[in-house]
Design a protein around this nucleic acid. Sequence first.
DNA 1: TATAAGATTTACT
DNA 2: GTAAATCTTATAT
Length: 195
Amino acid sequence: MKGGVPQRGFFLRSDVVSVARELIGLELITQLDGVRTSGIITETEAYAGVDDRASHAWGGRRTERNEAMYARGGTAYIYLCYGIHHLFNVVTNVEGVPHAVLIRSIAPVQGIDVMRMRRRQTIAPLRTDGPGRAAKALGLHTGLNGVDLFDGPITIGERIMAPSPDDIIAGPRIGVDYAEADALLPYRFRIETDL
DNA sequence: TATAAGATTTACT
DNA sequence: GTAAATCTTATAT
């Protein structure tokens, strides 16, 4: 994928960790109510399905909530966390394999004013780091769970940043201490912007 | 049927 | 630094 946008095949790959790493630097675009907002993906986490104790789909769990994880790659999985926050994931792998990449942080590109309004932060600097904040800034909510990224209001756009491997920092995931050994896996990727 | 905990953020002491 | 907000899923009666 050089210069262009990722194709369906990109999301159908079996190595969810590679997809998570390569999503860094791509533009994530939403078009809602005729308003376009977008940001550069700056932080992701991979969730490797049934073998990953930190995943909602660990051990083959399948509920009404995480049903979208079992869809084919290129589908959006949006769910409510702690009753308050909407978290956005990109489903990967083929249908029936519940792999997904959590978008943990973005850097605003288009529609910054709209994001400010959504976040109701007219004075303080707009913050879009953190999975809940990023999803809210883009206007994502559970009503968009299961939409197709190739035929819907959410799309993955062109690569805006081309980070060298040295700029991408891999590390353990956040907030999954309960997952024991799986919590230590280097499934989290981020790039230093100017934080 | 009831209770506890979670892929978090925000506000208050 | 600690706790509340708030809803779904998982586990236990």
